[in-house]
Design a binder for these strands. Structure first.
Lengths: 210, 210
DNA sequence: TCCCGTTTCAAACAAGCATTTGAAATTCAT
DNA sequence: ATGAATTTCAAATGCTTGTTTGAAACGGGA
């Protein structure tokens, strides 16, 4: 039989597929990504996709769900409002950026989310309601407190958009940033520096709004 | 011959292809878009792509170039710095948003640009250098004047990013916005309202920064 | 009317793709 | 160790895609 003892444990094809697929979906997008590239990088057979998931689409859903789960794990279930609103605003931005850019997370998590924003699959609705809606509510509260309820609901939302847009920018527009200001590619600022800047910028603007 | 007088003028297959392709590329992205869908919507034969352009890729380039050209046309060649920096900041934001969202432009122009940011083709380099770099320089100047040169170069850039990120948000993240705050889909704010908000928000923040 | 360059078209082509298949290999309870 | 269930695999299938082709239709100048 000549059997050589090969991989002793952790074959777990399913996990290898999710990791490989996540990276490739994030890099190429759903349609440009091919199942063969995914299975090759995972070191498994093409048919494994059909066996462990039903098809390419369900593999994608599994990847997205994985994303969502570990996002919850990184920052905890969103600390809710006690303490002064300034502090909570800072915490919000900190948590937001860390969920997207934290080095502990596979780098493709954030990229995948960015793709969902511009090219939403049917999974976006679920993500929005489960993961983003609660954050939006907390942001609404923070702004209301900071402005002492003196601005209209529409403006509260616009202010909220102004805050999160600054965070999302570093996620969405990497290609643009790196071309415009190459230093961002060679010596990227730490997440803390980004948080500091966005917090200071936003707080000053909100204070002036009331 | 029984010849019925059909379309008297403006057959111009080339133009029909660019319009149709622009809308479809913007909606589906380059890879998901199929040449047959493009030619069907344009009401021409598939082979027309090969005849008028060489292939799908060059059709895409043509569409992008068209985009870039009319963008120049809409706002003029970027008014440069005279007048107080506050006024120029406002003008900058106004022009930026109008270039992206102005209803005179086909709605797919902005979407295509957004796609280029997240999924850059080799055309992005050209767009950045020709269309965006000059704007970035102007923004740099404005911020330097507003802060009287008291902040570091890195911070000037971060502030600039904070301003444009707010503009790009309404371009990139429509799917997110409309899900979170459906009123934006039913009664979208006017461009002027967006300009007012982003200008006020950013100016207050910049003034506090110095 | 005839000719000739240009433009359109239906049909075919070839490549790439996701998916399926049926058998081999592996695992594991008995 | 034996047999059933699970998991892997090489190969094939069928569909969709971008691209090509060769002929037909068109348009305008002799």
């Amino acid at each position: 039989m000549l059997a050589i003892a090969e991989s002793p444990i952790i074959p777990d094809t399913r996990r290898k597929l999710i990791d490989s697929a996540g990276a490739i979906f994030a890099e190429h997008g759903f349609h440009k990504a091919t199942v063969r590239e995914i299975t090759d990088r995972a070191g498994v057979n093409v048919a494994a996709i059909n066996y462990h998931f039903r098809d390419k689409a369900e593999l994608y859903r599994a990847v997205l769900s994985e994303c969502h789960c570990t996002a919850q794990a990184v920052g905890g279930p969103l600390k809710l409002g006690d303490g002064p609103p300034e502090e909570r605003l800072r915490f919000y931005i900190d948590q937001f950026l860390n969920r997207l850019l934290h080095p502990d997370r596979p780098k493709w998590h954030g990229m995948l989310m960015a793709r969902e924003m511009t090219e939403p699959s049917d999974a976006l609705d679920i993500i929005v309601e489960e993961a983003i809606r609660p954050q939006a509510r907390e942001m609404e509260k923070i702004i209301n407190e900071l402005t002492k309820g003196k601005v209209s609901k529409d403006r509260v939302w616009m202010i909220g958009f102004s805050v999160v847009s600054q965070c999302l920018f570093y996620l969405h527009d990497r290609p643009l940033i790196e071309r415009l200001y190459p230093k961002f590619a060679s010596k990227p600022p730490s997440i803390e520096q980004l948080v500091d800047h966005i917090y200071a910028f936003s707080l000053a603007a909100i204070r002036a709004a009331k």
